[in-house]
Design a protein around this nucleic acid. Structure first.
Lengths: 240, 240
DNA sequence: CGTTATTTTGAGCTGTTTCAAGCGCCGTGG
DNA sequence: CCACGGCGCTTGAAACAGCTCAAAATAACG
């Protein structure tokens, strides 16, 4: 049942990585960068649907997404599941597990992807030595908390179409941060997964897409979405 | 309009605090404990409805709740608000602000309360020196992430009565952790606030309370709640 | 003890879900 | 190369959970 986790070992060079500015090595000197590279001893590859980790797995490392994307989801005892995040290149995944030394959610690749493994014990050690790395690690964890609060606001007080608009704008903004188009989106996830993330049924997501298209806000073709009217999309999210 | 933040300065002694085991000083030697106490130079008092901090305030410190309780909420541009947490004694508040050096939500006292101020720069400095403190700080942040994921599951995939049952069980469990009753709850928040937290309207919360009472699950009298049938409450949350 | 805020309850309404059917794309195999 | 089958997406119609509006009951407060 569980697909075999394909894994390749490759040497890492943060200094050459084009995600440098988004990822962990922010504001580091060349020397400090070198020490961070020394820490991360492997890059692993994943095919779509491969697990990066599963609920209950022992916690050893954080992972920096080098390419591709992952989704995280929490499972409820009764089989219900909730997608808690869609993560893109440059983002750090696995922070949930620090709390109990075992993963409280699971992470799956949404396409062919690569991650840099960051053994957490070594990362803590290094961050005791490099204050700017320590500070940055704290910022990354805090940013995750802020992100989650935003999703709570979305789930707790927005209606279906507001949620979808907020979702699309979020993708657009993260695309931009990576030097890609703000208006041309390639969705990596299904309507079912979007629905789970947004607290909606897949039919509702589909209807909202169709409605946006009728209104001339977007152009949808399954997983290819073009944002036509960003201002009106923003207005929709309630920034009125 | 903003109530004046009453604030008293008092010396702190973690070593004598009965929240020692819940709060920051976990697994510290006497010497390390002393250094942590030296860091926290003040205890501040708040009356009900006083702000601990507001959205946009400059970030300087985390706060350990010494007594009383706080709620945190995020505000949306259009006036909507979402309560993101109810925090009790022993819990750390303010983690959201590390990310941007300014608070992304606001925190209000729900009753007369006291907090220990923990200047974050000093806390980081100290945690570079004391690995077990560093680890514990990381665990606290990670725990907050896990907590938020749980709320996302609740908001994204539970129905009204399941949400309320989960909420009550969570309060019960945290009461227990503090040596109080698992079944006798004193709510500090209104139906409106519970509704905001659970993504429901206050009328829906009230109806769910009434329904639970009819079913013999709980005894409600406004803010006094007795949990009568814990097993059935648990079953209700879907641990089926 | 009157005034105000909070909670409860009712009745009708609405947005989202549920159930069901049809469509289109894509990979597989004939 | 085309037919077939499967999966994901769309769309419709009916059901329902939770919301809105309204009013009464109860608690909190000066």
């Amino acid at each position: 049942m569980p697909p075999p986790t394909s894994s390749k070992q490759l040497k890492i060079a943060c200094s050459n990585c084009n995600l440098r500015e988004l990822c962990l090595p922010v504001d580091l000197s060349a020397d400090e960068m070198g020490r961070l590279e020394a820490l991360s001893n492997s890059k692993r590859s994943f095919a779509a649907q491969d697990y990066l980790y599963r609920t209950g797995d022992h916690f050893k490392s954080l992972y920096a997404i080098h390419s591709g994307s992952f989704k995280t989801r929490v499972l409820h005892e009764d089989g219900r599941e909730q997608v808690t995040g869609f993560l893109m290149a440059g983002e750090i995944i696995g922070l949930d597990a620090i709390s109990t030394d075992s993963h409280t959610c699971e992470a799956l690749a949404m396409e062919a992807s690569e991650v840099c493994e960051l053994p957490f014990a070594k990362l803590e050690e290094l961050s005791r030595d490099i204050p700017s790395l320590q500070r940055h690690l704290h910022k990354i964890m805090s940013r995750e908390i802020v992100r989650d609060q935003g999703i709570m606001l979305l789930l707790g007080s927005m209606r279906a179409e507001e949620r979808l608009a907020a979702f699309l704008l979020n993708l657009s903004q993260r695309n931009t941060a990576r030097g890609f188009s703000a208006t041309q989106l390639q969705l990596r996830m299904s309507r079912l997964e979007i629905g789970s993330y947004l607290g909606l049924k897949l039919e509702t997501v589909s209807r909202a897409f169709s409605h946006f298209q009728e209104d001339g806000l977007i152009n949808v073709k399954i997983k290819t979405v073009e944002l036509i009217d960003l201002p009106r999309l923003r207005a929709l999210v309630g920034k009125s």
